[in-house]
Each structure stands twice: as structure tokens, then as C-alpha cells.
Design a protein around this nucleic acid. Structure first.
Lengths: 176, 176
DNA sequence: CTTCCATTTGACACCCAGTGCCATTAATCT
DNA sequence: AGATTAATGGCACTGGGTGTCAAATGGAAG
């Protein structure tokens, strides 16, 4: 897998030629499977998002908006304990390698669209109105902060950190 | 200026050679003034941030955290009316051209650090603790949503939109 | 003015990501 | 098998970004 190379040489130092050779395919073929080298670390994110949309659909209609968002985001990011070390390495790349950090912004847009869509529905407004967009943007932000926090403390439980951070958001960061 | 070229040909279609030739300098010299083509649209952002830090310093110590953040972010983004069209075009590039959208993420890190620093001070915690980071991340998110909203409605007043969006954040997006 | 020094510049040669083109090689169908 | 279609990968090219080095520039000091 290409991740061995990234782990060994670092993401930037690993060339597409190496990845392709490692996978036993031609360089040109690589670019038919992946739009860019960056996309290697983002598997089939689109399908994952469909899962999140589904989770939003399952939310009880009377559940307060931010409670629903919190639950879904936390559940969406729950991973099989066996996969945690793997997930950690992947997220380390995404959140710490500048090239990926930058590129990932483009992927986050779809994630935000799902959240904004749900919020808009609940608020009876358009998905691109100010409030749903601001809500989606800030939820994403909080999730990223939680991820970074999780990455830098080996012991932490991702879902707990996410839940705590989203609770703060729902409180408007009040210093009660 | 390079912005004419971006406006005429589009950002991606404008090559560094063209920019350099347009500025009457060599290509190599261009890369000595700018780390990348992307950086052209981000002038001296570092100095701007110093201004924001200063504004945070001026906040009355008894002002509630989120009120202070809101005021400072709004004021920080207030631009001379004469410069608005220019600012608009610059932000259009930053927020709509994928390459710049991605790259800008790296610049936002410094912006967030300023906000997180202030929040940490007020909360008596470390700047990289969860709450200051989450607060900074979500404030940035809300600001970006406000900017997008502003860009897509020619009539809107940036500061008003920012203020409204940040008020929502401070309320935890409650549907009162 | 000239000499000497340091800084700035830009030409040149690279590396690497990404793309268009096209011949070759599998699959697949009849 | 024979014909058709899709997948593959070689090749050449564009464009961003970097290292190297020689020439140009600009002061200061003599």
C-alpha cells in the first residue's frame, strides 16, 4: 500500500512513480484512479458521506438541532477499535502534512454541504442561507479541533473529545 | 499588477512567467518574493494579524469572551469603502478558486492562533487546549461563511453579515 | 573615480505533478 | 475465432517550484 511509503519516506518525498510502481501499475494508470496524489489518502469519502446523510435522516424530528448535529457527527466518526491505529495514521497525514491539509479543504466542502442541508431542513431555510452555512462551517471547525486534540494525546478517545467540543459549540462557548 | 491578469485570464490560466514578465522581473526573482503563485493574493497577512492582536489587547477585561471575539473580528474585517470592490475581487479569488481555497487554509492557521491565544488568556488555559482551539476554528468557520454570503449578495454589508453570523455562534445556533 | 564588498538578480538545469494523445493489450460479446 | 470496446501505459508536454552559479547592481571606503 501507498501508506507504507508515506510512513517511511514522508508524503512529499514519495513520488507518484514510486506509488504506481509499488502498486504494479503505470503512472498514467494511477492518475486514472486518483485525481491527484492527495486523493490517495481520501478513499471513497463520498460514500462515507452518504452514511452521514442517512444518520441525519434517522434523527427524531423533535430532537433539538444542535443535539442532532452533535450525535451524528460523533457517531459518524466512531471507528472500529481495531482500525483506530490506522485511522490515526491517516488523519495524521491529512491534518499535519501541509499539502494534504490544504487539499482536504476541498473535500470538507461536501461534508459541510451534508450538515448545512440538514440544518436548513430543520430551520426551514435554504441550504446556502447564512445560518446553515455558518453552522456547518463551525461544526466542521470544531470537529477539526477535536481531531487535532485527539492526535496529540495518544490516550484520548476520539468520540469523547468530539462530544465535548461540540457541546461547547452548542453552548456558544460560554464560560459558565 | 498581477490581479489584472487573474481577472482577465483566470488564476489557473495565468502562468508565473506571465506575472513575472508583467512585473518586469525574472521568474526566479518572483519566487524570491513569493513562496508560491498562491501567495500573490495574500499580501502581508502577517502584519494584518498584528493589527488583530492589538485589537484584542484593547478589549475591556470584563467584556464577555464571545462579545470580544465578535467585536474584534468584525472590526478587523472593516475596510475603507473605497477599497471594497478591490477587497471583493481578492476574496472572490481566495474563496472561489479551488487552488487558492485550498492554499488559504494554511494562512488561516495563523489567524486562528491569534484568536486561540486570546481565548486561552481569557479562559486561563493553554492556547492549544481543546476549548480555545475549537473556539478559534469555529470562529474562523463562521467568518468564512459570512464572507461567502457577502460575496454572493452584491448589496450586503460585510460587517453586518459577520456580526449576525457571529451572534449566532455566540448563541450556540439556538432556534429561539 | 576606482576598488572592494555584499546583496540582488536572473539564466539554466532540474524535479515532480498532472494532462492529452495514441498505440497496444486485455476483456467482452456474437 | 473475429470483432468491438474498454483498460492500460508509454511518450511528450505544460507549469510550479528549487538549487546553483555567474553576472549585475549598489554602496561604502580609499
Amino acid at each position: 500500500m501507498a501508506f507504507e511509503l508515506f510512513g517511511r519516506e514522508g508524503f512529499d518525498a514519495t513520488t507518484v512513480d514510486e506509488i504506481a510502481r509499488g502498486a504494479g501499475i503505470g503512472r498514467r494508470t494511477f492518475f486514472r484512479y486518483f485525481d491527484s496524489k492527495n486523493d490517495v489518502v481520501w478513499g471513497s469519502f463520498g460514500e462515507q458521506l452518504e452514511r452521514m446523510r442517512e444518520q441525519f435522516r434517522r434523527c427524531p424530528p423533535d430532537q433539538p438541532l444542535m443535539d442532532a448535529v452533535r450525535t451524528v457527527v460523533v457517531e459518524f466518526n466512531r471507528v472500529d477499535p481495531a482500525e483506530v491505529p490506522w485511522h490515526r495514521r491517516r488523519m495524521e497525514l491529512i491534518l499535519r502534512v501541509p499539502a494534504l491539509q490544504a487539499h482536504s479543504t476541498l473535500r470538507y466542502a461536501d461534508w459541510r454541504a451534508v450538515v448545512a442541508g440538514f440544518a436548513a431542513e430543520r430551520l426551514g431555510s435554504s441550504p446556502d442561507a447564512l445560518v446553515p452555512q455558518a453552522l456547518a462551517y463551525s461544526t466542521l471547525g470544531v470537529a477539526l479541533a477535536a481531531y487535532e486534540h485527539w492526535l496529540s494525546r495518544p490516550g484520548a478517545e476520539l468520540c469523547d473529545v468530539l462530544d465535548a467540543a461540540l457541546a461547547e459549540l452548542a453552548n456558544g462557548f460560554t464560560t459558565t
